[in-house]
Design a protein around this nucleic acid. Structure first.
Lengths: 344, 344
DNA sequence: TGGTCGGCTGAAACCGGTTTCTGTTAAGCG
DNA sequence: CGCTTAACAGAAACCGGTTTCAGCCGACCA
């Protein structure tokens, strides 16, 4: 009815009761007689009163909000992440604040500012400085997603090590490949760092000498094209296989290789990581690793909600979810099914 | 220093001044003598005081937050949208709340709840009911992104009509195609509705009879595969070209066509909409339309911020940004460049 | 020297809720 | 019938800030 916002006190006056009673009715707490409850509900209904979120939050000392911090929104990985997080937060009546640190230099400050507006934060690994992370953790419960935090900050992540071990071993042992290269910058994110380490360890486990250095590029498709230029353009002998830190790099390398007239996988084997939708679509389809990104994010949200619910801010331990090897044509495996992918 | 949060009153006591003075210093408002300012700043510095966001927001009657509502996060379109919105909001010290209505049935309520937590909301067209949109607009400034709102709710959108007119005309006139079909559900979103209307109008403008009905499917890749089954599987004559409501559908149709042994564009012409990264990557590369999604979202954020800044909640008018036709192989055009796409 | 004006300060009201704490009333019980 | 107790209602304090308003004081002017 009324366009101007009602307050508890106005409703109280209109219903002829005290503000305490209105609050009790609208929250369902305490004891209220049927008579009073009727009067209050009538007034609320009649004037379309909804309690103000700020007033309530201030009194409760709780924001009713969760934060999610990520470097940027490149690709389907982040899409899944956000949806997983959000779908877990909303049923708990918590709103979701997002922050893309992107290329901004003052992201540490912005994250700390976010810490003052929410009840807990999930931060993607490698997004902000450890120092900022520790300070943030002093304000609100924090969980690191896809990475590892300093101190005893809890984290949830996929099994990078296990799956990259399996993938590399697959290439080395089943396809009997040598001269593999790794494309991706281990310094860029904890995920890549773990993948690079596992890539090397798989070599060592089989008594094979791994390359000393990765081809350190960023995570976009264009960087994969660049890497392909570097690997295939010069006079250096062509590697047998290219293990990429994610699918987008792999797709870039694929384009670069095909553009040079190379056949994949006959002339060059390529693998990715993440299983983005396009990975199944391109020709040849991309061998990759599927992570339970959505569950990862949902689990992070759950941890935060639980910690925020308790005054003691329980930090809980770390969690590692399994990842799944997806073998397709680009590593030399036969096409798994009659090429009619079920979309996404 | 202190781990437990400081309040204005504590700082005031420690600095030996009144809370009003502390507030004035920390906000830089009003007149404060150098002596007082020093004392307050010292106390603030020493105890690491930062004003509580809730208290401040309550007193100011402003949340310092913007909302963004979308149906789901399928594909790069939404990624761009979020980043554009966020990059405009953050410099204004506004946090960004997101809400995926997804498959939830109670999204209207959730949107209204969001309206009580932010200073303004951008809603993707077709995401919530007109009724909810109108009620939301009574609470906070609202902008519809990629769609049109009821009443005088302002909107920002790309030039669907102009670009789809140009695209369809291109197929009809330049490539001299007939028997085009449109794949996409006009009832699903305002964008698709506009595109379908423009598709038909281009036919009429050239005196050609357009198809009476679209192939109404959803916006995911799998739906494109379904559409291909329907169009290419039966005994009905194969259409000359398939105009898809977005790139993901088009990619699905492409896979379906190639999987049936058809050559694209020789046997079947296909076009998309949005210019997702994969559109340039697939073979043949996809003819499509590039929308200024990021600018769209940034403009929406700007409108909201401006409206939220003024008590009068200026609704402002609508805004239509131009879109660009991207001609590639899949419509029959020659490859524009030596096939080394610069990634994305 | 008295009056006015402007700079500076702090007490108190306010934002919109929740919660404690006190008091009243009626029911239950010996 | 008197006493205890439970149910219920409301006044007031509280959450942590901002802002109004009144008052004090020194400077300036006639």
């Amino acid at each position: 009815m009324s366009n101007t916002r009602m307050t508890v006190r106005e409703i109280a006056k209109l219903a002829g009761v005290s503000v305490a009673t209105v609050s009790r009715v609208s929250n369902g707490t305490g004891q209220v007689s049927e008579e009073m409850r009727r009067r209050v509900l009538d007034a609320i209904e009649k004037h379309g009163y909804r309690p103000d979120h700020l007033g309530r939050a201030l009194a409760a000392g709780r924001h009713g909000a969760l934060g999610l911090v990520f470097p940027g929104l490149s690709g389907p990985y982040f899409t899944e992440l956000i949806q997983g997080f959000e779908s877990e937060a909303v049923p708990s009546r918590a709103s979701v604040h997002i922050l893309c640190t992107h290329l901004r230099s003052d992201s540490d400050d912005q994250v700390l500012e976010m810490g003052r507006r929410v009840d807990g934060v999930a931060v993607m690994g490698g997004t902000i400085s450890d120092e900022a992370l520790l300070r943030l953790a002093k304000m609100v419960p924090v969980v690191v997603v896809a990475g590892e935090g300093p101190g005893d900050i809890p984290s949830v992540r996929a099994d990078n090590v296990g799956s990259m071990l399996a993938l590399t071993r697959h290439l080395l042992a089943e396809h009997d490949l040598r001269d593999l290269v790794f494309v991706g910058n281990p310094a860029g994110s904890p995920d890549v760092s773990e993948r690079w380490a596992a890539f090397r360890r798989a070599h060592h486990d089989l008594g094979i000498e791994p390359p000393a250095e990765p081809v350190a590029v960023s995570m976009q498709q264009a960087d994969g094209v660049l890497a392909a230029d570097q690997l295939l353009g010069g006079d250096t002998p062509r590697p047998a296989g290219v293990v990429c830190a994610n699918d987008e790099i792999a797709l870039g390398v694929l384009v670069g290789a095909l553009g040079r007239g190379l056949r994949v996988p006959q002339d060059l084997h390529i693998t990715g990581f993440d299983d983005v939708p396009a990975a199944a679509l391109v020709t040849p389809a991309l061998t990759t690793v599927r992570q339970p990104v959505r569950e990862l994010a949902a689990e992070a949200a759950r941890l935060i909600l639980r910690a925020a619910g308790q005054p003691g801010n329980t930090p809980a331990g770390s969690l590692v979810l399994p990842a799944e090897l997806v073998l397709r044509r680009s590593c030399g495996c036969p096409a798994p099914r009659p090429e009619v992918p079920a979309g996404e």
